[in-house]
């Protein structure tokens, strides 16, 4: 862990909220990507991101300094998002608003990316978070396992299947050609 970050954490442990604000600034986008991958809704992900930073601050004493801070923080965020998802299901919310942007606009920007996003959105719920943690955060299989509380073998299987599903979808839509790499 960089010395500067360790200092911020130690100051936060002593109740320095400004130091924690700096941590929030550094990690908010990454935490948002975690919560978004699970909740698939910008507004819910925003709330979960805020809750995650509050919960992490309150539980900072439980953080083991020998562990990678980001992995611990993502674990807290993933748990908050999973709980929010369960709550949302219990309350039987109306269907989530479509996350993709204006389709017409996307035709002009990048059809292929839109197709990939649609393919990711169509993945089974259990597959999305590993995909985001792998491709967006660049986490290792082991770290993804820690964050999501899954065995490494399961993470590998889910990533492998998710990639195969996305590839099949993209081939079907003619976004990419059918060739084995």
């Amino acid at each position: 862990m960089p010395a500067e970050e360790l200092e911020l954490i130690q100051r936060s442990l002593n109740g320095d909220l400004e130091a924690w604000g700096e941590i929030v600034c550094r990690y908010k986008e990454a935490v948002f990507a975690v919560t978004l991958s699970i909740l698939r809704n910008y507004a819910d992900a925003e709330d979960a991101t805020q809750d995650a930073f509050i919960r992490a601050y309150e539980n900072l004493r439980k953080y083991d300094l020998s562990r990678k801070f980001s992995t611990w923080l993502f674990t807290v965020a993933a748990n908050i998002a999973k709980n929010a998802l369960r709550k949302r299901r219990r309350e039987r919310d109306p269907p989530l608003p479509e996350m993709d942007g204006d389709p017409a606009e996307e035709v002009h920007t990048d059809l292929r990316l839109a197709a990939v996003r649609a393919a990711v959105a169509a993945l089974p719920e259990a597959y999305r978070a590993p995909v985001v943690l792998y491709y967006w955060h660049g986490l290792s299989m082991e770290e993804i396992g820690q964050v999501l509380g899954l065995p490494v073998g399961t993470v590998k299987t889910r990533l492998h299947r998710a990639r195969a599903l996305i590839r099949a979808k993209l081939v079907e839509q003619g976004v990419i050609q059918d060739a084995v790499g």
Binding site: E29, V116, I176
Partner: peptide
Amino acid sequence: VDELLRAALQKEVAEGVKRL
């Protein structure tokens, strides 16, 4: 495919990041 995935996810997060 990997590159497309990475780019698409970056775009998705970037579009929502102004909320933060």
